[in-house]
Design a protein around this nucleic acid. Structure first.
Length: 124
DNA sequence: CGTGTGACCGGCG
DNA sequence: ACGCCGGCCACAC
């Protein structure tokens, strides 16, 4: 991944915003059966306050040529808030179940234990 | 070019 | 415990 996102004080002509690629790169690396949160990714990218941008980036994930496991990204409560943005609302839950993640009432069971922190796992 | 909005988060009453 | 509000950044209108 590119790691060039944190320094951008004056929105220079850095148009090739690597934000998407960075987010995608992180999401892709989420191990099967694990989940993470928007905030964690944002934090890893250095913009922890801008967790919204991560969500926005995910919204564009369908445009990516790669297969982005967006289902493994949930909010801080472990709730599948973005399910409505999938092909069908059930798709996200289904994919997660296929990963071995148990979903109950649109929320990841044992989310705390399945949580995958990129800042730690990748940064190691 | 101003305003509104979002798959969020943290703080405060 | 619950709900509201501000902040953040990029994009659509």
């Amino acid at each position: 991944m590119t790691k060039k996102t944190k320094e951008n004080p004056k929105k220079q002509q850095v148009k090739e915003y690597t934000f998407f690629e960075d987010v995608f790169a992180v999401v892709i690396q989420i191990p099967k059966g694990r989940v993470t949160s928007y905030g964690a990714i944002a934090n890893y990218l250095g913009t922890k306050m801008s967790a919204r941008m991560v969500g926005w980036a995910m919204n564009a994930s369908h445009s990516s040529l790669q297969n982005i496991p967006a289902q493994r990204v949930v909010n801080r409560n472990g709730m599948l808030t973005g399910k409505n943005h999938f092909a069908t609302p059930k798709r996200m839950e289904e994919l997660l179940k296929k990963d071995g993640v148990v979903i109950k009432n649109d929320t990841v069971v044992d989310f705390n234990n399945l949580f995958w922190n990129p800042a730690i796992e990748i940064g190691f």
